[in-house]
Nucleic acid binder design. Sequence first.
RNA 1: GCCGGCUUAGCUCAGCGGUAGAGCAACUGAUUCGUAAUCAGUAGGCCCGGGGUUCGAUUCCCCGAGCCGGCACCA
Length: 644
Amino acid sequence: MPAITLPDGSVRSFEGAVTGTMVAASIGPGLAKAALAMELDGKLVDLATEIRADARLRFVTRKDAEALELIRHDCAHVLAEAVQELFPGTQVTIGPPIENGFYYDFSRNEPFTPDDFAAIEAKMREIIARNAPFVRTEVAREDAIKLFTDKGERFKVELIRDLPASETISLYGQGDWVDLCRGPHMRGTGDVGTAFKLMKVAGAYWRGKSDNPVLSRIYGTAWRDQKELDAYLHMLEEAEKRDHRRIGREMHLFHQQEEATGSVFWHPKGWKLYRTVEDYMRRRLDDAGYVEVKTPQVLDRKLWEASGHWENYRKNMFMATVEDRDEAHKLLALKPMNCPCHVLVFNQGIRSYRELPLRMAEFGACHRYEPSGALHGIMRVRAFTQDDAHIFCEESQIADETVRFVALLSRVYRDLGFDSFQVKFSDRPEQRAGDDGIWDRAEGALQEACRIAGVAYELNPGEGAFYGPKLEFVLRDAIGRDWQCGTLQVDFVLPERLGAEYVAEDGTRKRPVMLHRAILGSFERFLGILIEQYAGRFPLWLAPVQVVVATIVDDAADYARQVAAQMQAAGIRVELDLRNEKINRKVVDHIEQRVPVLAVLGRREAEDGKVVLRRLPGREQENVSLAEAVAMLKREAVAPDLRP
RNA sequence: GCCGGCUUAGCUCAGCGGUAGAGCAACUGAUUCGUAAUCAGUAGGCCCGGGGUUCGAUUCCCCGAGCCGGCACCA
C-alpha cells in the first residue's frame, strides 16, 4: 500500500504496486501527457518503474532541467539504432549525454563522414516517428554476455565483463533494437522530439586509451524544441566570430605560419596589447613582493638530467647540438620550464631563513615540443612566455603563500575582465619523481592551504606535474573550451634534486619548499582568451589603438594632426585617419577594427578647437574641447592598478 | 601522435580533366562629403609541396606539410 508524497506535500495512497505512469494518470491527463520520467526518493528513474513502498515522487517534464539530459541520452540511442540500421556490421560502444548534446562511439572499418549525416538524421526522424517505447529489462550477467556475443558486439561484452558484480545489468529496448544501458530513459523514442542535429565526427580511442582501437564518434546536439536548437546554433555562430585566430587577423594583432609551427609572430598592435598586459603584471608582482630575474634559454643536458626533466619530460623538449664540443657537452636543450634555472639562481651564495619566502619571478620564454594535434591558434603553442615565479619557502609558509597567491590571482583576473574561474586540484600522476612520502606531504600541504585560503576545487586525479601536485585555474574560451591558465604547484622534489638549501634559525641547513606558480599561465594563451572574452573590443586601457582621429574634410587635416599629437604626448595610443573617404566609411572601418574611441573633426571643430568623440560601436557623440578630450581619455585609459 | 575534413588573389569564397572567377581589400583617378560602405578604372594567382595516371591535372590517385574539428597529450 504505497503512500506517495508529491513535491507539494500531498500524499496519495495506492492499493498495490503502481508505476509512475499510473500515478501521473491518477493526478490528471495533463500530467500524464507531460511526464517523461520521475525522481523517486531523489533518484531519477523511468516512469514505468514500479513503486512498491512509500516514496517521495517528483515528475520530470520537458520543462525541467533533467529533461535535456534525458532527451540527449535518448537521442544518442536513437542515433545508434539509426546507424546500425543504415550501416550493418557497425558495432556500438558508448553514447552519453554531454554539455549541449551527446555523442555515440561506433566501431566500423570505414569511419563516418559528415556526408553521412543527412541519411542518418532522416533515419533518426523515422525512428522517432515510430515512437517505440523504451523497455527496460534486467538480465543476468551471463545472459547479457551471451546476447551481445551473439550480436557480435565485442565492446559491449567487454563493458559487461568489467561491470562490478554488485551492478544490476539492464538493457533498454526500443522496438527491435536493444542496448546495454543503465538508464533512465523517457517513455519512447517519440519523446526525443525533432530539435536535434548531428554536428561533427571525430576519431576517439576506445575507453580513452591511445593504445586502444580508434572508434568513430558522432557528435550531436539536442534540445527541447526548435527554438532552443536555433538559439544554440546561433550562439555557436556568434562564438565563431569571437575566435581569437579570426580577430587576431582582422585586428592585425599577430600571425602564424608554417616556418614556425606553434609559434606566434606578434604584429605591432598585438605586441602593444602584450606589452600592456606585461607591464601591468610586472607592477602587480612588484607590489606583491616578487623579485624579477631573467635566465638562459639553452642549457646543458647535465642540468636536465639533474632536475629530472631528462627522465620525465624529454619527449617534449627541443634539443640543440653544437659540433665543436666534446661528446659530454654537445647536447643542450631549450628550456621547457624555468624552475631549474630559478633554483640555480637561488643556489648562488648562502641563503638564510630570513630571506624566505623568496618570490622569484620571470617572464620566462619556454619551448615545448607539443604533439602536432594539440596545437591550437595561440592557445596551445610550442614557444611561449610564462608569467612564472617560484616561491622558495619553509613548509610552514605554504598556506600563507597560497592565500596570498589566490588573492593576487583573483585581483588580476578581475582587472582583466574575468569574474569567475574554475579551480582543479591535480594529484600525483603515474609518472613522477619523488617517493610516496614526499607526495603525501605535498598533497596534504596543498589541501590544507586550500582550506585556509577558502578555495573550492574540483578533484582532477592523476593529473599533477611530475614533481608535485597542482592547483589549476581554468578559464573558458568563446566556444566553451576550458584552458588552464593559472597554476600553483607544491614541489619538494626539485629543491632536493638540485640541492637547494638555506640556513635555518637553529643554524642547520634545510631544504626550502618550492611553489611553482603562474597567473596568466602563458601570455600567448591568456591573450588568446582575453581576445575572445572581449571579442576584440578591449577596455580602453588594453586597446592597442585607443583613439582614431578622423577628418571629415581635408581642411581639418592640420587640426587633426595637432589633436593626434597632443593625445600622443599625453600617452594616448592614437592613429590618424586622413583618408579621402566619407566619414560614414571611416566610422564603419573603425568599428570593424574595434577601435574604442573615434574623434571626428570637421571645419567646425577646427575653428572652435573642439573634438567630437564617439564611443564605438555606439552612436552617441560628445562635443568637448581638445583639452577636455585629452584629460578625459587619459583618465579613462589608466590601468586598473594605477587608478586612484 | 591518432581519426576525419580542408588548403584557389591580402581576406571571404566560386569553379573545373582543356592551364581560373566574384565580392571586399590594394593601387590610380575623380569627388571634399557632418557620423554604419562615393563613383570609375587598374593591377593582382608555382590553384600548399612532391610524385603518379592522362595527349593534357588546379581538378583524379599516392606521399608529405600546414591548418580545422575531435581523441590522446598538456609542466
